[in-house]
Design a protein around this nucleic acid. Sequence first.
DNA 1: CGCCTTTGACCGGCGC
DNA 2: GCGCCGGTCAAAGGCG
Length: 206
Amino acid sequence: MEGGRGPPRGYELEVSFPNPQTMHHDMGFVPLEENHGPSFMVTSQSSPFPLPQVSVPFNSPITFSGDLISKPWNHDQMENLEARQVGEQNCTSDVGNSWWRSSSSDKSKVKVRRKLREPRFCFQTRSEVDVLDDGYKWRKYGQKVVKNSLHPRSYYRCTHTNCRVKKRVERLSEDCRMVITTYEGRHTHSPCDDSQSSEHECFNSF
DNA sequence: CGCCTTTGACCGGCGC
DNA sequence: GCGCCGGTCAAAGGCG
């Protein structure tokens, strides 16, 4: 498993989202919108959203590039906009991991709700490893070859109990050094909860 | 032994 | 309605 706590590595982080001004720091995700400004630079200190705890030198610049999301994530953008509005209020109590195969009669309704529920953001890193060390512990639950991508997409779920945050990891087909990581949901715990012996600084971004 | 990854199957959404 | 596609499940096997 490569998702463990390896020694600190240097990553070039290119965080991709469209419109940082509209981001809600309390929700900890990136609202996705169709129109967004040009790329800009911030430091990880000033980043308003929960950057994963990757081992970037703390003052190193992070490139936010807005064009990434607008291509393969159009579908997600729509979902995420919805999630901002209804996800927080309507979907606080949830069905756990077995929602999908539940035999309830309103399965479709549940599914719709779920689709709209989770806040989501993605970013792009240049890294040799697929799974960035963000301080949380992840369990892989699937891998899929997706269309228009040379590399398979991996699906991870947070191993913490009652935390259903998921992330997808895939490499850019155009540049296999670039890793696209998409987080979905909010952690209900701090990174420390997962790693008793973590040598990382612990912060709860949410 | 427990936790993890792998991998094929399954399911629903969506476009045609 | 059908087929494609993405996302998830779960059994099986591996590893520490």
